[in-house]
Design a protein around this nucleic acid. Structure first.
Lengths: 341, 341
DNA sequence: CTGAAAGCGCTTACAG
DNA sequence: CTGAAAGCGCTTACAG
């Protein structure tokens, strides 16, 4: 199963090589203060370590220190449509700076979170970072029952247990509705999907809230495509197409990259003109939306910063030295699909 | 820095609870053969382990067994445009099945591979999986010098040290050129970029090879956009636009998602018609290309299978029980941009 | 059939 | 100023 690694050099080897004890090697390698080892020995030890490629065995250190220096990451299914890379870079940047490691967990359906429990209690990870864009629901009950530290990154910002829900996304949704109001876009259609009869996110609720507060006189409707997991595009495009045959409206709102692109397909097939007669904002963040033609108006989300802070927050929870909360701001980025002339 | 974990239950606790020795607990937990422990005791131990949430400490086990059960992953910058999620799922599927863990490494510029060396010699990882789509160059010299097992996943398939270069991508490029030939697409333009004067991939070479072999009479040219890292879209679109003003041709080829989408923008702005007068194949795999309108003809790459096999191959290298080579097939997927009527 | 003991590589309190 | 020794949690060869 798991084989021996060849030529492992240990602190004992360095100690023998330099004629000192293992303790001294440990002190030097870890730059332990207050040990006053002769500068000459110190250099000799560092030199030997470099020459022999000595790195302290992480498991041995972890076992001895009763510590755990890896963080679990649950990426959701956000690889493609949410600047996943930026988020990851933010997370890694902080973890690297404190010598922590990032362990990838599975997103496969696992309602009991058995994988997380196993990783946590085996001391492989000390906590979990969830990426939950597209207002994916995540089930943190098991984590809370087991007091496993976790943080959640979403469009709303970064939050953890006991923290007030963040609202960056809610604010930008308000901006979108305000945009509609200010430009007399009166009939608004939100296209979303129900998968196995359930709605996979709550963007609709936020929209409703924003509309009731600042644009109650508009004509707003949600249109639902009934989809199956990994179903074909036509599950989405057919209902939209049929709706467009006998209806028109001022602006379409879509919840994610896939919907945004497919909606554009239907709109353009129906009536190709720029500026589009029917406007469109995709309530998601993704480079593809900005690269498409016409450029699809969508959102900017500060993913790198959110990743960085999420890592920091999680470690602070693990160490029980809480850091202060941080707010993030999303932004409506106008492409071609909200242009008027 | 790293805090104690509370309430850690160890095999000693289980042993005390059940009135047996640690050895017996270990035998039962690991289902050690040939130990003939009374069924009653075995059940009692398993029950206690479950009740107390006992999981063997992974570090202790690793140190004792001189083993390392995590694999490093270098994702390249393939989060957005290459079905990264599928590849990852394939990798995880195999690793999960053998109890290995996946550790995420950084893609930040690190020419000496110091991070990999440190992770490897600290016994955090036993090998490395590279994801190198878009024919990204990777530098494996340090790994080879240090005999660190690694495998590389690219459009061509999965390969490792000493393995003949795979050619799945080369074959599909031939298919593309054959398509051009069979449909009398005579003037072919390949649009790519040079970043800081260097070409980031070798798709051009493969194209040249295919053209020389099966379609030498065509009129083929590479057009280069000079770009900077993270430069604006106009670095790409402006040269293309200018070229389109005074030139026409039969088919455009583009190397990746971003180029594919930006090329479409230029083509459509120039002359919106379906079928397009100028055809287009994007030599990449990405859901966004298939969701865009018009659907962009592009490639299918069996990413899940490739990830799965890559994990299997890497572990086989680590354990020095090589498994046999496996070929993969890519496929040209026709969207709207290669339609004729 | 089961347990006492050694030992993996490391760090650290303690002795000198 | 430096080293011998204990001990982290586990597995396994060996003794009974």
């Amino acid at each position: 199963m798991s084989e021996k690694k060849k030529n492992t050099v240990t602190s004992k080897d360095i100690a023998r090589e330099c004629g000192v004890s293992q303790a001294t090697v440990s002190y030097v390698i870890n730059n332990k203060a207050g040990k006053r080892i002769s500068e000459e020995k110190r250099q000799e030890i560092l030199e030997a370590a470099r020459r022999l490629n000595y790195f302290p065995n992480a498991s041995a250190r972890s076992i001895r220190q009763q510590s755990c220096t890896s963080v679990g990451l649950l990426p959701g299914n956000n690889y493609t449509n949410a600047g996943f890379g930026d988020t990851l870079r933010g997370i890694k940047k902080h973890l690297d700076s404190i010598g922590y490691t990032l362990t990838l967990l599975s997103d496969d359906h696992d309602p009991e979170n058995t994988e997380i429990l196993r990783y946590y209690y085996s001391n492989i990870i000390c906590g979990v970072i969830y990426i939950a864009f597209d207002n994916q629901t995540i089930d943190v009950k098991t984590l809370e029952d087991n007091s496993i530290p976790y943080v959640v990154i979403s469009e709303n910002g970064v939050s953890c247990r006991g923290m007030e829900e963040k609202k960056a996304f809610e604010r930008v949704i308000f901006d979108c509705v305000r945009f509609c109001r200010d430009h007399q876009l009166k009939t608004i259609r939100y296209f979303t999907r129900a998968i196995n009869g359930r709605f996979p996110h709550n963007k609709y609720d936020l929209l409703m809230k924003a509309i009731q507060e600042i644009y109650p006189e508009c004509d707003f409707k949600r249109l639902t495509c009934v989809t199956t997991t990994d179903g074909p595009d036509s599950e989405v495009t057919e209902p939209i197409r049929r709706y467009l045959e006998s209806n028109t409206f001022d602006i379409a709102l879509t919840p994610n990259q896939r919907f945004g692109l497919l909606m554009q397909r239907c709109l353009l097939q129906n009536d190709f003109s720029i500026p589009q007669k029917i406007k469109h904002i995709c309530l998601a963040s993704s480079p593809a939306l900005q690269n498409a033609y016409p450029r699809i108006s969508s959102l900017y989300i500060p993913l790198f910063d959110m990743g960085f802070y999420a890592a920091k927050l999680l470690i602070s929870l693990v160490n029980e030295h809480p850091i202060k909360e941080q707010e993030f701001e999303c932004r409506l980025v106008h492409g071609d699909t909200t242009r008027f002339s």
